[in-house]
Design a protein around this nucleic acid. Structure first.
Length: 883
DNA sequence: GACCTGCTGCGGTTTG
């Protein structure tokens, strides 16, 4: 980072004036940080611009104002080709608006520039036009850029780029899409070392790292934007806090106050955390106010594009009163009329809270306002914590994936297709090739900065010969090495079929297995998880897209439905991500509880949410203690279900899953036992038929973090997790072809082929680095091993406060409910029995391998004797949970 | 004094 004031030379002054002049002619005043970014750009320096939420389009306009200057400069230089600009957006839906904004300042400079959009939905005629003559300003996605790199004449088309701008970099930097963009940028920089690259990012906890991730080895400036935007975060309080529920996440009790808020305000966005929650809330609102039919709409990722576009247009036109949505509206078009944002349930993270708040008040001078709608009492505390964390600027970090080899493998085939790359015969007896120049280029992408020669060679061998185990299959010899006319060895893809399949599978997004939902009369409504459809019988009803639908039949990978006569149905459950509470939010909650624990005159009680949560917090104090940042609350309780042990490390649900398994495993090493586990974002529960020996908890030895990795891997079935992970990796690496559009392969086929690869690699190619990657992704992403280790280390330092409860406390009840919920699924009874028997046997088998035989048999028989079948078991559990 | 969480994003066929 450099100080721009010292680097602006006199020659910068004139163009800067020109850009400024264009702005002020329209009555706009560029802010100091904008001028700072302009100076960097005019000096030919790349950078990252931190753009606060709520001002997206403005940035495109003033990038345009500077481009205008650059266009004129290039025009004056004799014989210089026109300025070429690439704008990368993570969402197709943003492309048109971005293009309009960025070219606004260029309007009167025609014909020195042309503009276009290239994404998956660009019509083929337009593509052909672009192929004949590349537009000078092109808006595209990371995937389409990758596809452009795979074209035979990629170099001629893209080497002349002058400027690349990556919009919403914060959305890309933390995932494989961002890694693909890093690789593409590395290639563009090889072709044009003077390429100017600028990123736009919302607020993050690690902006400097965001800049490094974007620029790799290249120098990049970081410019922090400041926009005076008032942000209001408040909370909708329950009418009768004393009777507000201690657990659950639906929040139907808040319906009346929410409807009253909608009544009193202009257009509102109502965010929920899940698609089914959005469906349910939409129904609740419509049932409460039938006169709002047509004014309230629904928006989530499983709805058909046409439906979503209709809703977006309605929002833009100000025709809708409210839209119930999931993250599908987090980004997107700037909806000017949106006046309020409401968030039902925990926002989980400060960054997401700010992102959603920024969807409202989309005009200079207007405040952004977000109203949190808690669904249980602890979420009242969370709401106050979220506000405090947001005000203190405690925003989450985002990290780029480290060296994902599936993305690299895909990229190598892309480059081989896109004109190929030079290779050398490898020294030594085992054959194979090296590509030192390419390795250098790849290492200039931040995610691969530590890529070893061995890893690179492995990837090269894998695309050339299918690695150690696929040598016999020609379709996995994707890249062929041949000498060109000058005798130089080059990697290319001569097979047209391989080339076509590769281009069809470019990208890193692996979608869940889902099925189209269609009317029998024609027309697509959206898509639902395959597993949910498979459970339906003809005549069954379910709620989807805000309607009650009757399932008719399945044909050719689509579920056909008609409007249902009945009024109620099951709500579809989509298999989606499970986002844990962020570290920032968790620690903000603990801080508040600490204040509450300190007594009635602590300042935290000035928060209205804390007042509303007071009855519950008082009950917690009467029965037990409040968790604080310095103490570890341990609650034990006996019920008809058995012996409960609850711990509250506040590590987020992923970490708690790992911890629960680890603790159960360690405890049963001391004393043979079988546990059922439950977790939420605050804590975990172990339930056992035998009394739990607490010694290892009280002396902290349970929290030992030496041998952590071994213990975690042994304590849970990581093989199953890794295999699931490998399915995605196999798709990204191009091992599994998902079929032609319109004729997709079924999930079963895809699963079968990816698990075949998994088995083959494990048996015959144990050194396959894609397997290693699957294990690493399970550890880092699903178990969050880093956070788990940190949580464990923290637990060792905490003072244990153990309370033996006479009845479930407000903190422990949600955990007990969580466990019950899993038992009370809508599966058919026979299936459930079957599964429980299997579990019982598996549990006994597991116990027998690691524990002494008589004790294990004893535990199993005790369980059998107690459980008189699932119905009786569930009944006794819910009785036990009653305080 | 009961109590239902689980998101988003893109890309691709062909050759009369």
């Amino acid at each position: 980072m450099r100080d721009p004031s010292t680097t602006a030379s006199p020659s910068d002054a004139a163009p800067l004036q020109a850009a400024r002049a264009w702005f002020s002619a329209r009555g706009w005043q560029p802010a100091a940080f904008q001028v700072e970014a302009w100076q960097h750009m005019l000096a030919g320096r790349s950078g990252l611009l931190h753009a606060s939420t709520g001002s997206g389009k403005t940035y495109a306009v003033w990038f345009g104002a500077l481009l205008r200057v650059l266009v004129e400069k290039k025009k004056r230089e004799q014989g210089a080709p026109p300025l070429r600009v690439l704008w990368i957006t993570p969402m197709r839906a943003l492309a048109a608006d971005s293009l309009r904004a960025i070219t606004l300042p260029l309007a009167d400079l025609a014909p020195h520039w042309t503009a276009g959009i290239r994404t998956g939905d660009t019509p083929s005629a337009e593509r052909a036009r672009q192929d004949r003559r590349m537009p000078t300003v092109l808006v595209t996605t990371p995937e389409s850029l990758s596809l452009m790199l795979s074209r035979e004449h990629a170099r001629e088309e893209l080497a002349q780029l002058d400027v690349v701008i990556v919009d919403e970099w914060h959305e890309l930097m933390g995932n494989k899409r961002g890694v693909q963009a890093q690789l593409a940028l590395a290639r563009l920089r090889t072709w044009n070392p003077a390429l100017l690259v600028w990123g736009l990012s919302a607020t993050l906890g690690n902006l400097d790292e965001a800049a490094r991730t974007l620029h790799g080895h290249a120098e990049g400036a970081l410019v922090r934007g400041h926009v005076d935007k008032t942000l209001v975060i408040d909370t909708l309080l329950p009418a009768n806090p004393g009777r507000f529920s201690w657990a659950g996440h639906l929040g139907a009790q808040m319906l009346e106050p929410l409807v009253a808020e909608l009544e009193a305000s202009g257009t509102a966005l109502v965010f929920t955390n899940t698609r089914s929650q959005a469906e349910i809330w939409y129904q609740l609102i419509i049932n409460a106010r039938p006169d709002w039919a047509g004014l309230v709409a629904l928006h989530h990722g499983s709805l058909a594009h046409e439906v979503r576009e209709w809703v977006e247009a309605g929002l833009k036109a100000g025709k809708l009163k409210a839209v119930v949505a999931t993250s599908s509206l987090d980004l997107g078009v700037d909806f000017l009329p949106v006046e309020r944002v409401l968030q039902i349930g925990s926002a989980k993270g400060v960054a997401r809270l700010l992102q959603r708040a920024g969807r409202s008040g989309h005009q200079p001078g207007r405040p952004s306002r977000i109203t949190l709608v808690p669904t249980n009492t602890l979420e009242l505390v969370e709401a106050a914590a979220a506000r405090r964390a947001a005000q203190a600027g405690r925003i989450e970090r985002r990290e780029t994936p480290q060296r994902p080899l599936d993305v690299l493998v895909q990229h190598l085939v892309t480059l081989a297709l896109g004109g190929g790359f030079e290779v050398l015969p490898r020294d030594g007896a085992q054959g194979g090739h090296d590509a030192p120049a390419l390795l250098d280029e790849i290492r200039r992408a931040h995610a691969y900065r530590d890529l070893t020669l061995e890893q690179f060679r492995w990837a090269l061998d894998f695309v050339e010969r299918g690695g150690a185990s696929l040598g016999a299959y020609p379709e996995y010899h994707r890249v062929r090495i041949e000498a060109d006319a000058d005798g130089v060895l080059r990697a290319g893809v001569p097979d047209r079929g391989i080339a076509r399949r590769h281009r069809m599978s470019v990208g890193t997004i692996v979608s869940d297995a889902s099925m189209q939902v269609k009317w029998i009369t024609g027309g697509t409504i959206g898509s639902i998880d395959e597993g949910f459809i498979a459970r339906l019988k003809p005549g069954d009803c379910f709620i989807f897209a805000g309607r009650v639908l009757e399932y008719v039949r399945t044909r050719e990978m689509a579920a056909y439905v008609k409007r249902a006569a009945r009024n109620r149905g099951a709500v579809p459950v989509w298999g989606g991500g499970k986002m844990p509470l962020s570290t920032e939010m968790a620690s903000a909650v603990l801080d508040l509880l600490q204040g509450a624990a300190q007594g009635d005159d602590d300042p935290v009680w000035s928060e209205p949410e804390l007042q509303a949560a007071r009855p519950m917090l008082q009950t917690q104090v009467q029965l037990s203690r409040l968790p604080t940042p310095r103490t570890l609350l341990v609650e034990t309780c006996d019920s008809r279900e058995g012996h409960h042990l609850c711990l509250y490390p506040f590590g987020g649900r992923n970490v708690h899953i790992g911890l629960a398994q680890l603790f159960a495993w360690r405890l049963s090493k001391h004393q043979p036992n079988t546990f059922s586990l439950a977790v939420n974002d605050y804590g975990l529960e172990l339930l056992s038929a035998l009394p739990i020996e607490l010694g290892a908890v009280l002396d902290h030895s349970l929290f030992d973090s030496s041998r952590l990795l071994d213990d975690v891997l042994q304590s849970l079935n990581s093989g199953e997790l890794a295999q699931r992970r490998f399915r995605e990796i196999a798709r990204v690496a191009g091992l599994v072809f998902t079929g032609f559009p319109g004729a997709p392969k079924s999930t079963r086929q895809l699963q079968a082929s990816s698990s075949l690869f998994y088995e083959v690699f494990r048996k015959y190619d144990a050194g396959n680095l894609l397997l290693t990657q699957a294990d690493a992704e399970v550890l880092s992403q699903e178990l969050e091993i880093g956070r788990l280790a940190a949580t464990l280390a923290r637990m060792q330092t905490l003072r244990i406060e153990h309370v033996a409860l006479p009845m479930p406390s407000p903190m422990s009840l949600p955990l007990m409910v969580e466990r019950l919920r899993e038992k009370l699924t809508t599966e058919k009874l026979a299936d459930r029995l079957q599964r429980m028997l299997q579990e019982l046997e598996a549990g006994a088998a597991r116990a027998e391998t690691s524990l002494s035989r008589p004790a294990a048999a004893g535990a199993a028989s005790r369980r059998r004797a107690r459980g008189a079948g699932p119905a009786a078991g569930a009944g006794s559990r819910s009785r036990a949970a009653r305080p």
